[in-house]
Design a binder for these strands. Sequence first.
DNA 1: TTGATATCAGAACGATCATTCTGTTATAGT
DNA 2: ACTATAACAGAATGATCGTTCTGATATCAA
Lengths: 180, 180
Amino acid sequence: MRHFWRRGYHATSIDDLIETVGVSRHTLYSAIGGKHEVYLRCFDVYQDAVVTPAFEKVEDGNATLDAIAEYFEKQIALAAAQGLPGPGCLVANAATETAPHDALAAQKVQEHHHRLKTGFAKVLLNAAPQLSAADRSNLADFLVTSAQGLWSMSRTVHYASALREQASLILSLIELRCAQ
Amino acid sequence: MRHFWRRGYHATSIDDLIETVGVSRHTLYSAIGGKHEVYLRCFDVYQDAVVTPAFEKVEDGNATLDAIAEYFEKQIALAAAQGLPGPGCLVANAATETAPHDALAAQKVQEHHHRLKTGFAKVLLNAAPQLSAADRSNLADFLVTSAQGLWSMSRTVHYASALREQASLILSLIELRCAQ
DNA sequence: TTGATATCAGAACGATCATTCTGTTATAGT
DNA sequence: ACTATAACAGAATGATCGTTCTGATATCAA
């Protein structure tokens, strides 16, 4: 997963995978099936290992905008810990690299976006109940797109501070809109 | 350029290039140098052929927020004309695929981001002169990140309407902030 | 201890990759 | 018309790719 995450699908070879995991070629193929199957399974691993720890507070029924700030901050801190320019987000990377030509990867991306949107929408329902459902839906989509932009940026940027400023600006704009 | 744009660097082969362009292998290598050199030149071609036509109004000294809306709309219309899910933006794709492991590509991405930021900042200076320079700089960065997010989305989304809603929401948030 | 299962290291395969090289043909200047 | 230059098609090369296959080794229940 870490190889696909950092280097992408095409730039990761079977040798990279078996060398890092310490498993034999035969085992990889007999147990999982091949490179593409491994890739697809990585999305599920990524959800459990990376997305859930940072995002589950957002998915809590009583979350506020702070939970979104915490999601951003956790992912930025993770990126900084792994070294910037960093790996970004496995799913965001897949959205640009593989999704347009890989229906199964595209489905994993869609599922992730749906998860994010649902979480963001739940927070917006708490934070700005006066907004229409359509407005909240659009704002949730906006947050998904913003996350996509942020994690793309984290692959080219050298300082976490740039990402933190971006994240806080996104949230301040949301707050401004919610206060309307 | 179109191959790199749509399929990315690793998924594009020399055969793809010479077949599409109608040039011989020998000519490609003697005239340009190799795959990587072709790739790097494509960024310049892309600036002239795609970015400038959509963005030059933003770079005009007297541009308003409408010019940014027009930039978004032109790129969305182009994506829709090429078929969604589309190729997105060559530079945005490079930001996630190659930039982290290719210093020269990373430089092209940086130059593009700087171009966008400078254009956006110029508009903000006209639209909201009461804001501090730091605020305008942050908002310009935000617009760069938003563009990155939008063009990433355009590689997974099936309807241009989703992109148009996103673009208009981004602009409405900017307007809200500028009216403060 | 035996036998079945699982995992191992590594060779082998066909395909594709980027790149270089070999002749041949077209073009353009004199 | 002649010559030099440029572009051509395509073979050849060495490397790497994903995948399959082979035989050896380890694990573990009976």
